[in-house]
Design a protein around this nucleic acid. Structure first.
Length: 487
RNA sequence: CGGAGCGUGGCGUAGUCCGGUAGCGCACUGCAAUGGGGUUGCAGGGGUCGCAGGUUCAAAUCCUGUCGCUCCGACCA
């Protein structure tokens, strides 16, 4: 292992891979495209998960669990849905292995009558069940979420950002009316925005996907879109208004209070372990990760510095009450008693992105002080040990805010309003988001994608297409959109 | 699936053209010193060179086959 990370500015791709593996977030699994989430990475995911789980429970949702395996025929029930996922499904065709000539082979006699697919998403199983559960308007709404793994056989994978198997939450709700479903879709999108901005410290654009980019089987897809350090876009979460598409595909009707029969209205929405990739690529720097305090597995790391065993004992005595203090105010801390040199530890914990480092050595014991260092800006200073509780709390808040503000400033600096296609291409090639007019034509969208690789990330809620012209066709703009190259 | 490249201790690699008993860095183990920004010194352990076959007195190195991986492209709600 080399000591230096690859340059984050010139080679962010290698930087990313090395940071993820060296910081102990994840490792490659044995099957191509799979990932082992290591304890440090999983704690990060758990923190994100717990925060969002709490949000949806407070808004009336409950968790449930549906099966991993889905009959192949289910996928085919919704035409657009199967189209969207057919090319990336893992399929179970047999149920047994056997030995032949010393080798383990698939037993040809165990072929399944109907193949089974491993869920790429759960709309189909869930709606097959909702058909059983819904008869009357009294059965609605259903507000179910599940935390699960899904498999999508992607051709090109990257740790966290796109893996063959990933963890996510998928909410699946059923409603009486179109309006109620639309409200749910947007309410959830707000929660996603809140999660991203207030907890992950990642500013996002919210808006509507174009037809070309929307979820296979949805009427409307809304998303949160974030800018990464290389100025590319990351779709960080999606919320879909499914209309009556799945209700029709699975024949899910209910009787209204006026005794008429109607198809149910649906939504689905998800965020995944991809968010972890987003956190890394939104906040990292040349020394490694920078964790937002609210989700950091370790918020502060204590580095004891000592020479002799005697000194070690002294330091321990000095640290004990401070540790109790951190515990009592609910700060997630870790004391690194390992026998590496202090300098090694500094670098190690910076790589891991721990927001605050506390150094405690003989000098501090003598002067009743301690040294604090901020990961976000590198500031390092000495404080009296009595100030610890107050200081650490405000510092964690400051770091949280600072990371968000830095990311927001960066995004705003790199988001440009553009009038001509030349300007457009210039910005896209040099990196950044473009805000411009679009004539609303899918053909235009496709042409631009072919010529520049940029896609419409969303039609933002605060669009203002009045007076704008389409950047490509020059026709009157139907929408103001945000364009970028995406992950 | 098309184009390129690569498989050598845990990781990263040299050696392959011009066959001759496998080398280096990091990591690891032990001891000692060191310790406020990746600390030194000394002593150790571990690989048969992706796999299979062939040529040869002799193969990591040459030949044939095969498997796997990476990158670029196509694909990616």
């Amino acid at each position: 292992m080399s000591k230096k990370l690859p340059n984050i500015d010139s080679d962010i791709s290698s930087w990313y891979t090395e940071v993820v593996t060296k910081a102990g977030l994840a490792d490659y699994g044995p099957v191509k495209g799979t990932m082992v989430i290591k304890p440090y990475g999983f704690q990060l995911w758990e923190n994100v998960k717990d925060i969002f789980d709490d949000m949806i429970k407070k808004t009336g949702h409950t968790n449930a669990y549906f099966p991993l395996l889905i009959p192949k025929s289910f996928l085919a029930k919704e035409a657009e849905h199967v189209e969207g996922f057919a090319k990336e499904c893992a399929i179970v065709t047999h149920t047994r292995l056997k030995s032949e000539k010393g080798e383990i082979i698939v037993d040809p006699d165990s072929r399944l009558e109907e193949e089974v697919i491993i869920r790429p998403t759960s709309e189909t199983v869930i709606w097959s069940m909702y058909k059983k559960w819904i008869q009357s308007y009294r059965d609605l709404p259903i507000l179910i979420n599940q935390w699960a793994n899904v498999v999508r056989w992607e051709m090109r994978t990257r740790l966290f950002l796109r893996t063959t198997e990933f963890l996510w939450q998928e909410g699946h709700t059923a409603h009486q009316t179109k309006e109620e479903a639309q409200k749910e879709t947007l309410d959830i999108l707000e929660l996603y925005k809140k999660l991203a901005e207030e907890y992950l410290a990642i500013p996002v654009f919210t808006g509507l996907k174009t037809d070309a980019e929307k979820f296979a089987g949805a009427d409307k897809t809304y998303c949160i879109e974030a800018m990464m350090l290389d100025k590319r876009a990351l779709q960080a979460g999606t919320s879909h208004n499914l209309g009556q598409n799945f209700a029709k595909a699975f024949d899910v009707k209910f009787q209204t209070d006026s005794n008429s029969e109607q198809f149910v209205w649906a939504t689905s929405w998800g965020i995944s372990t991809r968010l972890i990739g987003g956190v890394i690529l939104a906040h990292g720097d040349k020394n490694g990760l920078r964790m937002p305090p609210k989700i950091a597995p370790i918020q502060t790391v204590l580095i004891p510095i000592f020479r002799s065993e005697d000194q070690k004992g002294e330091i321990k005595k000095y640290i004990n009450p401070l540790e109790a203090e951190l515990k009592s105010i609910g700060v997630r801390y870790f004391i690194d008693w390992s026998d590496s040199s202090p300098g090694f530890k500094f670098n190690e914990w910076e790589l891991k992105g721990v927001p605050v480092r506390i150094e405690i050595g003989p000098k501090d014991v003598e002067s009743k002080k301690l040294v604090m260092a901020r990961r976000d800006n590198g500031e390092k200073f000495s404080i009296s040990k009595n100030e610890l509780s107050n200081k650490i709390k405000t510092m964690l808040e400051e770091i949280q805010n600072n990371l968000f503000n830095q990311a927001k400033e960066f995004r705003n600096e790199n988001t440009h309003d553009v009038k001509t296609y030349d300007e457009f291409k210039n910005i896209i090639n040099n990196g950044g988001f473009v805000r411009c007019g679009w004539d609303g034509d899918s053909e235009t969208e496709l042409k631009i994608k072919e010529e520049t690789k940029a896609t419409i990330r969303c039609i933002p809620f605060n669009e203002d297409p009045k007076g704008l012209k389409c950047v490509y066709s020059g026709k009157k703009a139907k929408h103001e959109v945000i364009y970028a190259k995406a992950y």
